[in-house]
Write a protein that binds this DNA or RNA. Structure first.
Lengths: 218, 218
DNA sequence: AAATCAAATATCCTATAGGATTTAAGAAAC
DNA sequence: GTTTCTTAAATCCTATAGGATATTTGATTT
């Protein structure tokens, strides 16, 4: 019985999604945690030595990261993490979020599966201060997923990575207000009130923008 | 004289933006032109032999294409172009476009630079039937760029590639109506009427959706 | 005749070595 | 003290060989 279980587990594990994917996840995590700060050179050789793999998967991972805007490459000059967002980029990012996420919240309120609705509430119950970023990311991911549109979900996932990095740069820990705003959105979704969910999400993003904008002078 | 020619040639070649980038453009063009049809295996070795380069730049290019959703990779099974969009994906794509492009048209009408406005009209003057796809892509690209938000422009560029492929699959050549709809948008932008531009763009996308939807049964 | 199993092929994935190029540091000259 | 040139380091790009896996083909059995 246990053997059967292990075999099934082995089968799933026997399908490692490839070293490139593994490296991709690892480097992306290092960038998001600021272990590799913005605007920092990233050497293929160093990474290969550090992770104990050859250069090929490193290159593939960095190419994917480049396509996602987390690093940039210069010919014969190597890779470097993207510089921290400036004011203009922050404005553009939140303009984009205001286009997408309120609509996603409306659709989620109207069509979200019950299982996801439960996950939405449960995740919110443990807002440990240091894991606020992960909680926030998961919250917005669930709503985007609840909208039932993969393009919306993928776009927002990409954007939230940059929000995450930006927030990490400033050790922003203003969780109090954000949690209340989240609660309002959750309540509207549970009530299946699309209009209210959309408005609550719009307000949340606008206020979130106001909180982050204060960190930038230029 | 041959030496002079060679030297000039050497100079231009001596400044390649990278083989990976070159391969990326080439393969993307082949996918968009259906020279590589949807749901088709793409061999790293074959590409390397065909293009006369080693495997490394091929892999980097395919990794970038994968991050952009044009090909998918299965571990130890190679790359393959994404299958043609089905009905659900078409619905999601146009839902997304309706979120973004009307807003982009409004902003473009309010803030577009005069040079881009001229380019908008000039491009529309030569609607050769076989190049309609390129013209349409350029039209929407200019408006997205006119909105002054790189995220909007990049997102739409990604989406339009898939629209392009879908249209190519069905040899869709209904340019008549589309050109008229474009004209309405252009007129609104030239008049700097944001509301009208937004409405015209929304109508254009909705009707464009109706035209493409007819090609799908499932 | 259809289904199942085994071997062979084709492909991917990895590792290592070597050549080519850019960038950066350090010394010399003005 | 500043500029320029030379040298060195770091990096990318390529090529080749070997191991691992999926797919295909063919033979055997039911």
């Amino acid at each position: 019985m246990a053997s059967t279980l292990n075999e099934t587990a082995d089968r799933t594990i026997a399908r490692p999604s490839g070293l490139s994917e593994e490296v991709y996840r690892r480097v992306r995590a290092d960038i998001m945690s600021l272990k590799i700060p913005p605007d920092t050179r990233v050497s293929v050789d160093s990474l290969a030595r550090e992770l104990g793999v050859s250069q090929t998967p490193i290159r593939e991972a960095l190419s994917m990261l480049e396509a996602n805007g987390l690093v940039s490459k210069r010919h014969f000059a190597g890779y470097a993490t993207s510089p921290r967002m400036d004011r203009a980029q922050l404005d553009e990012l939140f303009e984009f979020r205001l286009l997408i996420e309120p609509h996603a919240a409306r659709k989620a309120a109207e069509a979200m599966a019950d299982a996801d609705k439960r996950a939405l509430s449960s995740g919110e119950t443990a807002p440990s201060h240091e894991a606020f970023a992960d909680m926030d990311t998961e919250f917005h991911r669930l709503i985007a997923q609840g909208a039932g549109n993969h393009l919306i979900a993928d776009s927002l996932a990409r954007l939230h990575i940059h929000v995450h990095i930006f927030r990490a740069c400033f050790r922003s820990e203003i969780t109090e207000e954000a949690v209340h705003e989240h609660d309002a959105i959750i309540a509207a979704i549970h009530a299946r009130d699309g209009g209210k969910a959309e408005a609550a999400m719009r307000r949340h993003i606008e206020r979130s923008y106001g909180r982050l904008r204060d960190f930038i002078k230029d």
